[in-house]
């Protein structure tokens, strides 16, 4: 074999490798984007439920205005956030404030018996869980993607092909502790 043929074969192998790498990275990045969209759907769903909740609770909770205000504030913070980190932080805040609200609602037997409130509570618990699950799925996808672009030999080309590390949606340690309710 002439040196020329050998060179051509080597180049062909490298080009093929790059094509496969590029395609698999595109597919992975789309999966990351799609799982991010899942989080967004759930965050939006929760935001849509909150005005109803406030409306229902307002009549019963006369003395805990600040609890309700915190929920409203956290809700609008999510709408303003546009980075992954910002959304994660705002979302955790909202989860916290909602927990406080539901903890306070324990003191109002009439509220707890309210059909509408019970439904909203179930919807919100379900949505909170879905946020947690979609976050988990998103983080898994991000980890697969990041590992792929950071490992050798992919790392040589990934950067050239303009693939950047994706940020994961972090849960704060706070989330796992019990909520203290202050008046």
């Amino acid at each position: 074999m002439s040196p020329l043929t050998i060179t051509l074969i080597v180049i062909a192998v490298i080009v093929l490798f790059i094509i496969f790498l590029y395609n698999s990275l595109i597919s992975l990045r789309n999966q990351v984007k799609n799982s991010w969209a899942q989080i967004d759907v759930q965050l939006k769903r929760r935001n849509d439920l909150i005005p109803n909740l406030i409306e229902t609770v307002k009549g019963y909770m006369k003395h805990e205005k600040s609890v309700l205000e915190n929920v409203t504030k956290a809700r609008s913070a999510i709408l303003k956030a546009d980075t992954v980190e910002g959304k994660a932080k705002a979302s955790n805040m909202l989860s916290q404030t909602l927990k406080s609200l539901f903890a306070v609602s324990e003191n109002y037997p009439q509220l707890k018996a309210n059909e509408n409130f019970m439904q909203l509570q179930e919807e919100l618990t379900g949505t909170e869980n879905k946020i947690a699950y979609s976050r988990q799925h998103y983080n898994d996808m991000v980890m697969v993607f990041n590992t792929k672009i950071e490992t050798f030999p992919n790392s040589i080309f990934a950067n050239q092909l303009n693939f950047k590390k994706e940020a994961s949606f972090e849960a704060t340690g706070q989330e796992k502790k019990n909520v203290k309710v202050q008046f």
């Binding site: 379900g126 869980n129 879905k130």
Partner: peptide
């Protein structure tokens, strides 16, 4: 069965 529904939806998201 809202809570069955929510659980199934949530875990489907988790499993992708």
């Amino acid at each position: 069965y809202p809570h069955l529904y929510h659980t199934i939806e949530g875990l489907a998201i988790s499993a992708g």
